[in-house]
Design a protein around this nucleic acid. Structure first.
Length: 429
DNA sequence: TCTGGGGTCCTAGGACCC
DNA sequence: TCTGGGGTCCTAGGACCC
């Protein structure tokens, strides 16, 4: 599109298509294991703790999203549900394949999450529903992942359209809501808590004020909304009215924080094990920093006992590095000092984590006059370690991370990492 | 017995300055 | 010496998302 068309482009109504992978993690497992077709499948969170993905068959059994696995143990057993630990390497790789496929349909695309993307379909001179169906067919054929497409003049309406595409048999995987005229009846059937940006707290407040449906909210008094729910509320109302407040974000935003945390496979009561765990998180966080070309000036370390017991102990410390760093050795050094201050004898710790913040681009680090570290040397060392680890199935570890690691996260039912490990490729019969 | 992880944005309120 | 008030910056916590 030439420069002379710019004014037209801005005046032109925007059209968003939200492409959402169905039951993404469960579908990934299925894509490599055809025997799972038609069977109930669930995927568990870290530590095999909660249900984080369910195939339609599993949903039909009444297995809720996010419920602890032990609570539905019986249902899982009695129905021969296929249960998997999460396999993030596999899901990330499958996500990349889906996104790459989607990018062939339009260059104007925002990868919104691991399993969702917004596409800009403004200016397409074809039936958008037909185009949506073509997207579904292609993604399924090229990746094995089923997707649904919701189309609307704002992201919020595209989200609602996608919900309908998933639930309505008539829609058959694609719903176009760009025709505002027919919207009222549809919005009247959407409860407020199903609207994007309306969470549980907001939903309760809205309902107390008699606002039960998306249509009620669309017609709410904007000043009252602003007063009670701030600008986020106002944006949602406008979006429901067809005025776009959330543009397509094509460039991934610069990261503002990097976090690594894990629940332990079993409770930890020794300070040494706590230190080993946190050293491991530092190692992972350092990799993430360097991957993004960033360095951190602040590090927060926290530890906690189980959040489901009385007298929970939670504590955190934040330290500032004299010079922003991405050196794992420095991260570990800082974290171990924090742990010394956070540890309390007698508590059973269930989880620890670190958060890196005040991130800066690594080539814009403010030097410190009194800095004695050889930063060029440490950077070369980190590069060497990252290079080795990217090629090794069994990565180099820092001594501080410990060897046995009995507290490690549980993954008792992980499938093979079909696409990212040579030793776990799917066998050909 | 068993209950995930990683992010962002907004707002209110305090500190501080003029 | 006493005093008001406005602006800005920062942070912690809440809420939400997937």
């Amino acid at each position: 599109m030439g420069g002379s068309d710019r004014r037209y482009t801005q005046a032109m109504k925007e059209i968003f298509a939200l492409v959402d992978c169905n039951n993404f993690y469960a579908s990934c497992e299925r894509a490599f294991n055809p025997k799972l077709e038609g069977r109930p499948v669930v995927v568990l969170s870290n530590n095999d703790g909660c249900i984080v993905a369910r195939s339609n068959e599993a949903k039909a059994l009444g297995i809720g999203m996010g419920v602890p696995a032990f609570e539905v143990e019986k249902i899982l057993e009695e129905n021969n549900v296929e249960v998997f630990s999460s396999n993030y390497a596999l899901y990330a790789d499958m996500s990349a394949r889906v996104m790459k496929t989607l990018s062939t349909f339009t260059p104007d695309m925002e990868v919104y999450s691991i399993d969702e993307a917004f596409l800009n379909l403004a200016g397409f001179n074809c039936s958008l529903t037909d185009y949506g169906r073509k997207i579904c067919r292609t993604v399924k054929r090229w990746t094995g992942i089923p997707v649904t497409v919701g189309i609307g003049p704002t992201k919020t309406l595209a989200k609602i359209a996608n919900r309908i595409a998933k639930h309505s048999a008539k829609a058959d995987g694609v719903k176009d809501l760009t025709d505002i005229g027919s919207l009222n009846g549809i919005l009247a059937a959407i409860p407020v808590e199903k609207i994007w940006t309306v969470g549980i707290k907001t939903a309760i407040k809205l309902k107390r004020a008699g606002i039960e449906t998306a249509l009620n909210l669309q017609r709410a008094d904007i000043n009252w909304i602003r007063q009670k729910f701030g600008v986020v509320g106002v944006r949602t109302v406008y979006e429901l009215r067809g005025m776009s407040c959330y543009p397509l974000e094509q460039n991934p935003p610069v990261k503002k924080s990097i976090a690594v945390s894990r629940s332990f496979g079993r409770p930890v009561d020794s300070v040494d094990e706590l230190k080993e765990a946190v050293a491991g998180y530092c190692s992972r966080a350092g990799e993430k920093l360097r991957q993004h070309g960033l360095a951190a000036a602040l590090m927060t370390v926290y530890v906690t006992t189980s959040r489901f017991i009385k007298n929970r102990y939670f504590n955190s410390r934040t330290i500032e590095f004299p010079v922003a760093t991405s050196d794992t050795k420095e991260l570990i050094g800082g974290a171990l000092l924090c742990i010394d201050g956070l540890y309390r004898r007698g508590f059973l710790f269930k989880k620890a984590g670190i958060v890196l913040s005040s991130l800066v681009s690594e080539n814009r680090i403010q030097p410190n006059l009194f800095d004695s570290a050889d930063r060029a040397r440490s950077r070369r060392l980190m590069q060497a370690i990252d290079a080795v680890n990217s090629r090794l199935n069994c990565p180099l570890r820092w001594a501080a991370e410990g060897l046995n690691r009995p507290w490690k996260v549980k993954f008792n039912r992980r499938s093979h990492r079909y696409t990212t490990r040579w030793d776990e490729l799917p066998p050909v019969a």
